[in-house]
Write a protein that binds this DNA or RNA. Sequence first.
DNA 1: TACACTCCCCTAGAATATCTATTAAAGCTT
DNA 2: AAGCTTTAATAGATATTCTAGGGGAGTGTA
Lengths: 110, 110
Amino acid sequence: MLTTKAELLQGTLDLLILKTLTTGPLHGYAIAQHIQQRSDDILVVEEGSLYPCLYRMEEKGWIAAAWGKSDNNRRAKFYTLTRAGRKQLEEETAIWERVHRAITLVLQAA
Amino acid sequence: MLTTKAELLQGTLDLLILKTLTTGPLHGYAIAQHIQQRSDDILVVEEGSLYPCLYRMEEKGWIAAAWGKSDNNRRAKFYTLTRAGRKQLEEETAIWERVHRAITLVLQAA
DNA sequence: TACACTCCCCTAGAATATCTATTAAAGCTT
DNA sequence: AAGCTTTAATAGATATTCTAGGGGAGTGTA
């Protein structure tokens, strides 16, 4: 994921995608746009990161894919969050909060 | 860095080490312990991650090493934050806050 | 018709960070 | 002498992401 320092926060892409899909099915391109917009253009998801990530998540059963047509009348693969995906989202959210708290503790040290 | 999900937050180790060294010179082993304790045992820095990271940071001029003796009277390599390291710490702290804010935005989305 | 542009998908190869697992040496304790 | 802790180091594996492309299909425009 592109940020100012490109390699920061490896490991959060799954979480962001899972969260993005809670509002309903979206195709890959839209997922990336959504994350970028919601993050005030700070997080930019490159396609070379996005699609492999979607495949991994599909293989793990967290999301399910179906071909359809986009708003712009183009063929697009829509991803839906599965029950397992919701569970995974809960777990990853908890981990994120836990680790965020831990890092904050270290950074706040006198 | 080991967390519940081992591969989470790749990219924050530099930041944590730099911050840990602001209190004064420490040897590698102590840096790892410090991070673990300050984080309430959530962040566990494996030695296989720590030492290569220290070398990278030394090469980049963010820290400087000097051999000495530890509290336990053992030979140890003490690392000191350089001026460039302080600058890097500022930058990485800012990036962390930026990205944390961005991720929070995405996670808070309705 | 031709052309450009955007949308949307996909992939190969490289770069990088971290982990696992192991070695090793030196001091302390028993 | 044996064993434990401390401290350093490295090789090899793994996983994620990036770079850098390719390509098709719809829409608009000259």
